[in-house]
Design a protein around this nucleic acid. Structure first.
Length: 664
DNA sequence: CCCATTCGGTTTTTT
DNA sequence: ACCGAATGGG
């Protein structure tokens, strides 16, 4: 097995004398190194799988890796092997050690939607931008280990003081709800480990070797968790690529690659520079582009694949034509080369850009899957059901309470909730608890009060059954009791209701299977849901075109790639400063390096925004690519560039000039 | 006091 | 084409 690896890879797999950093260029086989190393640890070095933890960036990557290791280990029992994201590892630590932190193990996990509402209320503001700002501010404070108190002390102006105050109240609110946010899932275990060495000792004893993927995208907090878990043993392998760091906006810092060197004197660094994925032309375009960034680590990515086709740059008249052209070209290419739909990916900077392509693909009856985008669990109908589950697990979860009691409508509305809320606030109890207090009977109209108690007792009954009865029965019972299907058809168009109900059934089916397979309690399932993006392996189209954001495409590869919407203000995103431009450039780099054989990058000259047109400029990144490797195919039809009058002419003309310098 | 419909203003990236 | 606040009916 080891002989299938190149020397650098083999070295990375077998090196166990101390901490190791693997600088793995795009397509250099880093996943292979990680999976093989796990197998190596188990089969050659006598590690028990349950003592190894592999940390990935997404749940999808985690389940893929688990599967791969499972097949490689065949026969041998991979049970107990930890393959998860930082967040789900943190969740598991937190659930096991909750009591030490004053939480109950059934704590709720709030997603950004939940926290958004809380911050909005605390800030008493409806301003989206402001709430967003505060949200990221709090997130940054947390990952930098700045407590509300410190934040208040450090505040230089009134605005910062107000925000520090909101931060403090936000933390109190989460506590009161017995809830944690995404940052807490990492932050609290670190706090726990610092305050309770015995707990840290337990986990260090559990996890003897750590493998961390996508290391360039870790933030300070995650790094601290890693260091604590690794302890003096420092038995870990971190794998990363500074050129693919695209999560700085989430607090990730490439600096962590450097820090590793400073903190571990014995750190060994191995570079993987041979690319096994892309044609030489694609690689050359990628390399030239990324060289416009200030380099952290020098790396020289090369490939012994063929030279390949030139990278096509396509200028579309507008967004609709871009979608039409891409889909037409894709279909033509497919039928000419007898490829599969799954060989193609359409990548874009932001989710909303997918719409035009989805429409075209649907119109042409081309099967497709959208990854990223509004996740399955973000859908209203799924959130409705999970609200009930959250409430059953943790009655103090006020946001879940509000959602559950108002969907389906059962005669409890804003006014009632406000009264309940102010009473709960005064008494420092959750809405659920407040409902049973005697004062509510006086404050609420009889009808409302009755409905309220009816609901709470209903939840209580389900709660009692949650421990005894299997997850599936409980779910069916719940859906029947709230008459959810009928309510869906009552309040939606038949077609909409159809898909919504299908989603619900898919969800409950998944939940039942998962609960049985993993022998997890309903509580554990509910907590897991908060972290998962999509249903893994749900009757996915066997052969479908992939639509994905550039972020979500990291780690994937496709024979043929279309990067669309390569325009100023989109990619790079508007108002990017110099630092952000570099990150946007890396994003483009990630997109380019997804492609194995062919790549087209397109942009529009104008784009519909609302009801009027907006002129667009081609992305500056196009100019940073080697002209000799590009071929321009502008206008509406290939090889027959038709220029729309007006915007973007100069850039278009420049690109057209490149046509004459066609390589070959 | 609750809830459905309409109108108006919008869109980074994700655990 | 999609969500959220205002508005009027029940």
């Amino acid at each position: 097995m080891l002989n299938k690896l190149n020397p650098a890879q083999r070295e990375a797999v077998t090196y166990l004398d101390g901490p190791l950093l693997v600088l793995a260029g795009a397509g250099s086989g880093k996943t292979r190194v990680i999976t093989q190393k796990i197998v190596h640890l188990v089969e050659r070095c006598g590690y028990a799988p349950r003592n190894i933890a592999a940390i990935t960036f997404t749940n999808k990557a985690a389940s893929e890796m688990r599967e791969r290791v499972g097949t490689l280990l065949q026969g041998k029992d991979a049970k107990g092997l930890v393959v998860s994201t930082f967040h789900s590892l943190g969740m598991n630590i937190l659930r096991a050690e909750a009591k030490l932190l004053g939480y109950k193990p059934q704590f709720s996990i709030f997603d950004s939607g939940d926290t958004w509402k809380i911050i909005g209320e605390l800030a008493n503001s409806g301003d989206k931008q402001e709430i967003r700002d505060i949200q990221t501010q709090i997130s940054n404070w947390k990952s930098a280990f700045i407590a509300p108190q410190q934040a208040a002390e450090n505040a230089g102006n009134d605005e910062e003081k107000v925000r520090a105050r909101i931060y403090a109240r936000y933390q109190e609110t989460l506590r009161a709800y017995q809830a944690v946010d995404f940052d807490d899932l990492i932050h609290l275990p670190v706090v726990l480990f610092k305050e309770h060495p015995d707990a840290l000792f337990r986990w260090q004893n559990r996890l003897h070797y750590l493998l961390i993927d996508e290391y360039q995208d870790t933030n300070d907090c995650q790094y601290q968790l890693t260091r604590l878990l690794a302890g003096h043993r420092a038995a870990f392998t971190a794998v990363g690529d500074d050129d693919q760091a695209i999560y700085a906006w989430r607090g990730a810092s490439i600096e962590n690659l450097h820090n590793l060197r400073n903190d571990y004197a014995k750190l060994r660094v191995i570079k993987l520079e041979q690319n096994y994925r892309s044609s030489q032309r694609i690689l050359k375009v990628a390399n030239r582009l990324i060289n416009h960034n200030t380099k952290v680590f020098e790396k020289n990515l090369w490939s012994d694949h063929g030279i390949g086709d030139p990278v096509r740059i396509y200028a579309a008249r507008d967004d609709e034509h871009e979608a039409e052209s891409v889909v037409m070209k894709l279909m033509a290419h497919k039928f000419e080369h007898r490829t599969r739909f799954a060989d193609y990916a359409i990548l874009y900077r932001s989710n909303h850009l997918s719409r035009a392509f989805e429409e075209q693909l649907r119109a042409q009856r081309v099967p497709y899957t959208v990854s990223g985008g509004t996740s399955f669990f973000e859908r209203a109908e799924i959130k409705d059901i999970t609200a009930y589950l959250r409430l059953i697990a943790n009655p103090d979860d006020d946001p879940a309470f509000i959602r559950a009691i108002t969907t389906p409508k059962r005669g409890i509305g804003n006014t009632t909730l406000e009264k309940l809320g102010s009473h709960a606030g005064a008494r420092h109890v959750s809405l659920f608890e407040a409902a049973f207090e005697i004062e509510m009977e006086q404050q609420l109209p009889p009808r409302q009060h009755e409905d309220l108690l009816l609901f709470c007792n209903f939840i209580n009954r389900l709660q009692e059954r949650a421990d005894k009865d299997p997850c599936g029965e409980l779910l069916d019972e719940l859906l029947r009791a709230i008459n959810y299907e009928a309510w869906l058809y009552d309040t939606h168009e038949p077609r909409q209701a159809d898909t919504k109900w299908e989603n619900v059934q898919e969800f409950t089916g998944w939940l039942k299977r998962k609960a049985e397979a993993d022998e997890k309690s309903l509580v554990a399932m509910v907590q897991t849901i908060a972290l998962i993006n999509m249903l893994e392996g749900k009757d996915e189209e066997p052969d479908a075109v992939s639509l994905s954001t550039l972020h979500a495409a990291k780690g994937l590869e496709f024979p043929h790639v279309f990067i669309v919407g390569a325009e100023e203000d989109i990619l790079p995103f508007r108002d990017s400063d110099e630092k952000q431009i570099e990150e946007e450039r890396r994003l483009m780099y990630v997109g380019i390096t997804r492609a194995e054989r062919s790549l087209q990058i397109s942009y529009c000259n104008r784009r519909k925004r609302g009801k009027d047109w907006m002129a667009c400029e081609p992305s500056r990144f196009l100019e940073e690519m080697p002209e000799g490797e590009l071929v321009y195919a502008g206008g509406h039809k290939e090889a027959a560039p038709t220029l729309s009058k007006g915007e973007g002419m100069d850039k278009l003309a420049r690109l057209k000039a490149m046509l004459n310098k066609e390589p070959g």
